[in-house]
Design a protein around this nucleic acid. Structure first.
Lengths: 328, 328
DNA sequence: TTGAAAGCGCTAACAC
DNA sequence: GTGTTAGCGCTTTCAA
């Protein structure tokens, strides 16, 4: 099919481009019979406005860049769903970028975002640090960060206070005089772990104790399972805190294997809630982190920024601890 | 920061736009000292070519549309990872669209894709039917379908032969004279289920039997668990085939609850493999479907189509049955 | 090797 | 209420 342009429609309907433009943009001042003529021409020719040309003329693309970590989508997926649902309402399109390791790759992504002239960018990734964010703001690209409170001016954010969550739960255990608490870290979510540790440390401090229960495990499920299988034989802990469900499951399975009774001999709490938490046995106690809302709110914030351009305050969403079968 | 254009760079470097354009596009015929001058100007001004303007001028956007179902990304996630890894190599950007129910919403997505002038579109969704695909091809948008063999000319595809997979496994059981086999369906993946049923039916036919073991369950995990808990009390089956891991888990948990011994009294096989299959207990026997590769290959095919424009043959990827603890 | 100028498809003053 | 025209930022042909 021959690419049909606004010009073809104008000719077909015997009007000027301007009038066609008015019709497709819903500008009111067009007489209804010419509007109809134009509409018919559009139908007949199957004309679809070229968003790229519109983008050039208007200096805005109605595209929002989204940056997420590669790998598991079990958690990120919900964020994306929230994001997209809101994006649809406001007619924004989403351009998807993933980042893994490698500083050069990160620079590529940033470069790419700038070139593509997105109207704004939503970032859910620890990988983009202040430097990258600064170059983005230098190019006047509105930014919303998911999962962290933004550290810079002009950057907005929506997040859950992980530190607080861990603080509270650890405090509960310390009050019951249970202090053999560890946090498992697989080095894949450094930033989250840092906050978890910080929360735990604060709780310990409150009780005049010192927290040093950070244990490193391998990044892959299989090897972390193997690691824990031998580790747990020698080390008993009262409470294990994990970031991801996969880590908790490695822990559960290893404990079962050894014969550790969950939750009576050892309790496990996972920070992030996925649909699998209540499917596995024992069902995994976890925090409910409103991931869908994180995405939805992020998108809402960005649309606001694009309309008012005055910066939005960081938004803190609340978590809920959901006890299941891995806690007493 | 003031938007800097190719014109600013030209002025800064004392050359014409054309020369700057040549430099940023790596056209060889520029003298090296002018090239250097231009490069310096670009650095100094922090110039980044406007992909939108390039898109207009070149009539191509280097954007690929991606259509996926909303909801769970546990499986789709791997497809996206494969897709993005290859997209990065070829410098394509991905614009993400999700579809759920609702014919109007689907039309919106199609409309949106056409307007955004993507160079091609990769579709992983049963929701887009022949009608929608036809309008896409009418607008000369190259299409690659993931998960189904394309039914139309000019449309390419990459898929796994689910029908065959189920045929083979069911045949194995029938040869052992086990024919109390059911397939669980939750109405969320109609197309897949249809193929599974077809595969099972063929196997039964081969043994001069008739397959009618399709059982409908609720779509949500919780209600399907409840349903199965009461269903399995009255109905014993030798083999349960499911599409998604969540369905299999509902089945496993319900069976456990009732006291059905898996795999001795009842076996369970899940079609789609996720990382959770080997984390849960009992570990779930399943087919390994190369989802990452489905994405990667789809992207490769699209790039080929964009370069040669001769249509690509459908690509069939292979599956591997991976027995774990839910089968004998 | 470089520059001038037309054109990609659209929007938005401004004029009629 | 409708048309004319000058951009939006870039590529590319054709001259020089």
């Amino acid at each position: 099919m021959k690419r049909v342009t606004i010009y073809d429609v104008a000719k077909e309907a015997n009007v000027s481009l301007a009038t066609v433009s008015r019709v497709i943009n819903g500008v009111e001042i067009v007489r209804s019979d010419t509007r109809d003529r134009v509409q018919q021409a559009i139908e007949k020719l199957g004309y679809k406005p070229n968003a790229i040309a519109q983008g050039l003329a208007l200096k805005k693309t109605t595209i929002i860049g989204l940056v997420i970590p590669e790998a598991s989508f079990t958690y990120t997926g919900q964020i994306i769903n929230g994001l997209l649902d809101v994006a649809k309402i406001y007619k924004y399109n989403i351009m998807l970028h993933t980042v893994t390791e490698g500083i050069s790759e990160i620079n590529d992504v940033v470069e790419n975002i700038i070139k593509s002239r997105v109207d704004g960018v939503i970032i859910y990734s620890d990988k983009l640090q202040d430097a990258e964010l600064s170059t983005l703001t230098k190019y006047d690209i509105p930014i919303v960060i998911i999962g962290n409170k933004a550290a810079q001016e002009k950057i907005s954010s929506v997040y859950v206070n992980i530190e607080q969550a861990i603080y509270e739960i650890v405090d509960v255990y310390l009050q019951k005089n249970i202090d053999d608490i560890v946090i498992i870290e697989d080095r894949k979510n450094r930033n989250s772990i840092k906050k978890m540790v910080s929360g735990a440390s604060n709780a310990f401090k409150k009780h005049n104790k010192e927290f040093n229960g950070l244990i490193e495990i391998p990044a892959e499920y299989r090897s972390s399972y193997d690691f824990l299988s031998s580790y747990l034989k020698k080390h008993k802990h009262s409470l294990v805190l994990t970031n991801r469900d996969s880590q908790a499951m490695a822990c559960i399975n290893a404990a079962k294997e050894i014969g550790i009774d969950i939750p009576n001999e050892m309790e496990i709490i996972c920070l992030i809630d996925t649909k699998y938490n209540s499917m596995i046995r024992p069902q995994l106690s976890s925090f409910f982190i409103p991931s869908y809302d994180l995405g939805a709110v992020a998108m809402r914030i960005i649309t606001k920024m694009l309309n008012n351009s005055n910066d939005e305050k960081p938004v803190e969403l609340s978590y809920v601890f959901t006890p299941r079968q891995t806690t007493k």
